[in-house]
Amino acid sequence: IRCIGVSNRDFVEGMSGGTWVDVVLEHGGCVTVMAQDKPTVDIELVTTTVSNMAEVRSYCYEASISDMASDSRCPTQGEAYLDKQSDTQYVCKRTLVDRGWGNGCGLFGKGSLVTCAKFTCSKKMTGKSIQPENLEYRIMLSVHGSQHSGMIVNDTGYETDENRAKVEVTPNSPRAEATLGGFGSLGLDCEPRTGLDFSDLYYLTMNNKHWLVHKEWFHDIPLPWHAGADTGTPHWNNKEALVEFKDAHAKRQTVVVLGSQEGAVHTALAGALEAEMDGAKGKLFSGHLKCRLKMDKLRLKGVSYSLCTAAFTFTKVPAETLHGTVTVEVQYAGTDGPCKIPVQMAVDMQTLTPVGRLITANPVITESTENSKMMLELDPPFGDSYIVIGVGDKKITHHWHRSGSTIGKAFEATVRGAKRMAVLGDTAWDFGSVGGVFNSLGKGIHQIFGAAFKSLFGGMSWFSQILIGTLLVWLGLNTKNGSISLTCLALGGVMIFLSTAVSA
């Protein structure tokens, strides 16, 4: 259960009878995928790494000078000259100064003066180019299975845990398959586009800190620079940016070097996208990844198990997540596992009318040892309800109150669905055939309105939902006002479609 501690969480529900669903994975976010007769899966884009970055340009932001020398000439005696002028490691300046009897010249006039100092770069920052084909995306998957609280967001041991898996995709191999043991396998067909235009970005490294910066900004930095990788004795261009020549006297000129420019660069980098280094690879934390999940090989585990009949206890007080759902960790005293956990939410304890829904599909106890633990997640209705676990006299209950409203949740879900469709863009549509167009249209309606429909009408039977949709269509056909007619027709059509397409 990876997503319960992530604030940016998206719930995606598969269409009834569908074998695939489109998701948008982004750094700092987590996606929970639910479908009829399929286990619930949490998917998170953990890291995006980039390798084989080529150094484009380096800037010196802290330097020192040494070996200063000057040469001067009297008027009419030609130009002052130093051998160091031809050495690229030196920074030199030529000027004219007033000369006369007082400073060793027989004539009054302008004399030539040249001053040089050896330039040494102490600290530099480097910009590297990123090729999209060198990106690698690491995705962690977790099935809502027989897990306890100690396994949440624990990325170790996934090789031997059938509840978890790690997959890596690249532009050259965008397809992967996550093996989930008894739950089958989940196929991923990803489109490795981060949403960032790397043709316009460089990877900047300064003092063990890293950013993504725009090329134009990078090339306009007014500091000494050299092109390409460091060859040991780089040729620094624009050395004068960190060196200041003071007022010249008759035979000498003082040279000083400016202080470190790291603070000024940090100020200019305010708002830039931060990154990290992992050995020789860069780690990015921006952008998104679009994936199509193929769920035809994914299956529920323990459908044929019998119900657990022994007593359950709450190991922890049920807690609310950031998303309005409830996490419950229970301990089973029996030894008759594997068995299914009898769990439901009810409005009252007399009729036990089921409300809400299970995020953890078909929760089971897989071990036959005593005191096995299991964590599950529920989506309670707004208002008061009861969490009921167990059967008969051994069942345990917990009162729950959820604040908020169904309308607010439906609106929030619609906005999130619209954002998801905007990110998917043209990849969500198939114009290759008439059937493809209608299929894409259905998927689009489901992406945007599916979660809201589930919130508003999830407790009704599909037949009642179709009746309401048919009534809206009838009202649309018999209303003389054009805008009201079109609105009723659209709402009725969407409702009829979703009542037959969205899983219960």
Rank of each mutant, 00 (worst) to 15 (best):
I1E: 04
I4Y: 08
N8W: 10
D10H: 06
V12E: 11
M15H: 04
W20F: 05
V21N: 02
T32S: 06
T32N: 03
T32V: 01
Q36Y: 08
D37S: 11
D37Q: 03
T40N: 06
T48V: 14
T49Y: 12
V50E: 04
N52V: 02
V56Q: 04
V56K: 07
Y61A: 02
I65G: 00
S66G: 07
D67K: 06
M68P: 00
S72R: 01
R73V: 07
C74P: 01
A80G: 15
A80P: 14
K84Y: 09
S86T: 09
D87W: 08
T88P: 14
C92V: 04
K93G: 14
D98I: 07
G100R: 04
L107V: 03
L107R: 07
V114Y: 05
K118L: 12
S122P: 04
I130W: 10
Q131W: 15
E136H: 00
R138E: 07
V143D: 07
H144A: 04
S149F: 15
G150Q: 15
Y158R: 13
N163A: 15
V167H: 03
S173E: 05
A178I: 03
A178M: 10
T179C: 14
G181P: 06
G181H: 02
G182S: 15
S185G: 09
D189L: 01
D189P: 04
E191H: 08
E191S: 12
R193N: 14
L201H: 02
Y202W: 09
Y202E: 07
T205I: 14
K215I: 08
H219V: 11
D220T: 04
W225S: 02
G228K: 08
A229Y: 08
A229K: 10
T233A: 14
P234I: 04
P234S: 14
N237F: 04
K239W: 07
E244Y: 01
A248I: 15
H249V: 05
A250Q: 07
V256R: 00
L258Q: 03
Q261L: 06
G271D: 09
M277N: 14
G279E: 14
G279D: 15
G282N: 03
L284T: 06
S286V: 00
H288Y: 11
L289D: 04
C291F: 03
R292E: 01
L293R: 03
M295R: 04
K297A: 14
L298R: 04
L300E: 04
S304W: 03
S304D: 01
S304H: 08
S304G: 00
L307M: 15
C308G: 06
F312T: 06
F314W: 14
K316V: 00
G324P: 10
T325Y: 10
V326Q: 04
V328R: 01
E329H: 12
Y332A: 07
A333N: 01
T335Y: 13
D336H: 12
P338D: 08
P338I: 07
P342S: 12
V343Q: 05
Q350R: 15
T351E: 00
T353Q: 14
A361M: 11
N371P: 01
S372I: 03
M374Y: 02
L376V: 15
D379F: 03
I389L: 13
G390M: 10
V391K: 15
G392N: 11
K394S: 13
T397V: 12
H398I: 00
G404L: 02
S405V: 01
T406D: 06
I407L: 10
G408F: 08
G408E: 09
F411V: 08
F411Y: 14
F411N: 12
A413Q: 15
V415M: 15
R420F: 09
V423D: 02
T427A: 14
A428S: 11
G432W: 07
S433M: 07
N439Y: 15
L441G: 01
G444C: 09
H446W: 11
I448W: 10
I448H: 10
I448V: 15
F449G: 10
G450M: 13
G450I: 07
F453E: 11
S455Y: 06
F457Q: 10
G459D: 05
S461K: 09
W462N: 06
L477F: 14
L477N: 08
T479W: 06
T479Y: 09
A490F: 14
A504E: 08
